[in-house]
Design a protein around this nucleic acid. Sequence first.
DNA 1: GCTCAACCGGAGAGGCTCTCCGGTTTAAGT
DNA 2: ACTTAAACCGGAGAGCCTCTCCGGTTGAGC
Lengths: 184, 184
Amino acid sequence: MRADARDNRERVLRAARAAFAEHGAQASLNKIAQSAGVGPGTLYRHFPTLGALLVAIIGDDVAALCEKGRDLLGHPSPVEALRTWLRAVAEHATTMRGLVAARMAVPPAPDDDAALAACHERIRATGSALLERAQRDGGVPGDVEIGDLLTLVNAIAWVSQQAPCDEYLLDRLLALVRGMEPLP
Amino acid sequence: MRADARDNRERVLRAARAAFAEHGAQASLNKIAQSAGVGPGTLYRHFPTLGALLVAIIGDDVAALCEKGRDLLGHPSPVEALRTWLRAVAEHATTMRGLVAARMAVPPAPDDDAALAACHERIRATGSALLERAQRDGGVPGDVEIGDLLTLVNAIAWVSQQAPCDEYLLDRLLALVRGMEPLP
DNA sequence: GCTCAACCGGAGAGGCTCTCCGGTTTAAGT
DNA sequence: ACTTAAACCGGAGAGCCTCTCCGGTTGAGC
């Protein structure tokens, strides 16, 4: 990739991060391009879809969540480890005004963005390890599926951003999930 | 209201119902007006916002849900009654490609649509009666709040519509909620 | 039948997404 | 260092969209 191209790409990413954080999915790609100092054509060449742009932004976050998950595999309480990690996933999914949660909630269709599918798979693999460990420990019912659990956590994260004034909503809703009951 | 005005209003509602069912929130109000055979101005005069249009469409459904809730207050098992009703709420919220769930998920802001707030309040009152009965019966923990429960149910309904090919997702996610465990 | 308030709908402003293509710049090869 | 071809840039513009305004029309009451 040419140096000027990489430069533009990064300027777009910076502008997009700011715009998504402020306006969520309603952010105008036009204005992102403008505030990045490039033309619309340049933006669309680098990121053909809004999804591609988002995945490029959160790629590092996904890696961080996976690493945190790996660390938690060494936690003395498997159930506590799973809970902590799901809380972190939910917390991250609330960024960008719930745009991340909306995009990550369900497995992508086969013809969808490949990078998005990769993010999904990495999160799923990490969660699967944590869940199975918690299930072997007996603290979580065996019929719980990691895909469903992640979907539910993302749904909760999404809806929490719909009522931005209620800052404890996320935790209250998570507490309504089986296996995430508040500790006595 | 003049006869022609009422006529137009109902034609718009019919067209909107069809368009929302097909395209959800991405439905074009322009095309709704066109397929109803009226101009954009007419549509916007009757329904200034997308929310107003949606509330007008689902008004009857909300009444039906409340009536079903009242009937279920006579059910022999309070817990079963609550479960059945929440399942019905979720089922209804998945209509219009999740648009209903998205609009009903969290309490409306004070400056929001008055009709929407009324819908919210009616649903909440019905659910509250069912929940308190189930809590008195001892089948549901006392710390559960009806507002949170409805928000969670709507979030589940919304996310279920994000993966339209997985028809059992709604039930699997509901089963992950405390108090909605599958019966043995 | 007359009147006038209520209503209609199209024109149009302004914004958005996304594409296309002529001009420019960079990196590689000599 | 110079040439060259491929890669890249960005603006113009087509075709959507939302929402408003206003001149012409229609229906309800007298």
